[in-house]
Amino acid sequence: MKLTAQERLGARILIVDDQPANVSLLEAMLEEAGYTQVTSTMEPDKVCAMHRKTPFDLILLDLQMPTMDGFQVMDSLKASTAEDDYLPVLVITAQPGHKLRALQAGAKDFVSKPFDMVEVKARIHNLIEVRLLHRKLAQHNIALERQVQERTAELRESEARYRGLTELATDWYWEQDGEGRFTKVSGPVLEMLGLQVEALNDDSGHEHSDDGWNPAERQRLQARIAARSPFLDMVLSRELPGGGVRQYRVSGTPMFDSRCTLIGYRGFGVEMLGSTK
């Protein structure tokens, strides 16, 4: 993720200093560097309202001012913004002892008086890049979250359509939750699996002993379902009381949520053409 020169030079910058000469010097330096949105004030008590109205990307803040010093300005800015908001302040001080205190108060960096213009430009450039990249990343994350929500809604809608079409196109359909309990049954699924109706969500595992279904095939099918493993077109046969055999193709697949966590299992079966009656 990169910034264009236009994005960086279009950053909103506020100069706060009670000395007209310092304000003029910083304005000229920023204009020469190509910055296009530079504002200044010699009234520190107005900074908070100005920042609330249209937030600045960087505030060049003098610490020593008579009516309201820079520390009070930073306290006011922190009190009027959210706790996790970024405080885009570069302090200007002639007192070496104020540097650590300013950083502890929330300033992101400092420059010393008298100005070294090369150093001032470099620090401004770096802080603006950090600020704008941080904002760009936050916007990108919001956009990604929105895409995830939209995609999740689409997947849910697709899942509902798939379920409906599968039920219409098959003779049997069933769903189980992550614990193996049946949550949806359409068609003679329980009979196919050898479960009695009362054992729908019972761990006792009651089975029909003589119902015509091929026991070896049924056992393989039950093992696949118990293991939550996917399978496709497994053949299941059943001898009819009056003679003849019916065969079915049965398929099953595990279901996962967006975090790839197993949430259940589903399967469906269709009668094969050519079964003998």
Rank of each mutant, 00 (worst) to 15 (best):
K108Y: 08
V89S: 00
P114D: 01
V16Y: 04
D203L: 14
V16Q: 07
I142C: 13
A153T: 07
F110D: 03
R101D: 15
K136L: 00
S112M: 11
Q64F: 13
I128P: 14
R101N: 13
V23M: 11
G180A: 04
A82L: 13
K2I: 11
Y173L: 04
D203V: 13
D17A: 04
T170L: 02
L25G: 05
I128C: 08
A21M: 10
L193W: 09
Y35C: 01
L195C: 02
A105Q: 09
E191V: 01
V73E: 02
M192Q: 07
Q19E: 13
A153F: 12
N22K: 05
L144W: 06
Q64Y: 12
W172C: 13
H134A: 12
A102L: 06
D45C: 11
K184R: 10
R161M: 13
L9M: 02
D57V: 05
P66N: 05
D177V: 03
L90R: 10
D45L: 14
L236K: 06
K99Y: 08
F110V: 00
T41R: 02
V111A: 05
R52T: 04
L221N: 01
R220T: 07
A227S: 12
D177K: 05
G267H: 03
D57A: 06
R123W: 07
P96K: 02
P215E: 00
Y248L: 09
P44E: 00
D211T: 00
L165R: 07
A28H: 06
E191A: 09
M29P: 00
T166S: 10
I13E: 02
T39M: 08
P96V: 02
V23K: 06
V120H: 08
L58D: 06
R266C: 09
A105Y: 08
S40Q: 01
V235T: 11
D62M: 05
T152A: 13
V189E: 07
S158V: 10
R52S: 13
A5I: 01
Q149Y: 12
V130H: 12
L133R: 02
A122D: 07
R181S: 10
L168P: 11
G34A: 09
L262P: 15
E217L: 10
K99M: 15
M1T: 11
R131T: 15
F56G: 08
E207T: 12
H140K: 11
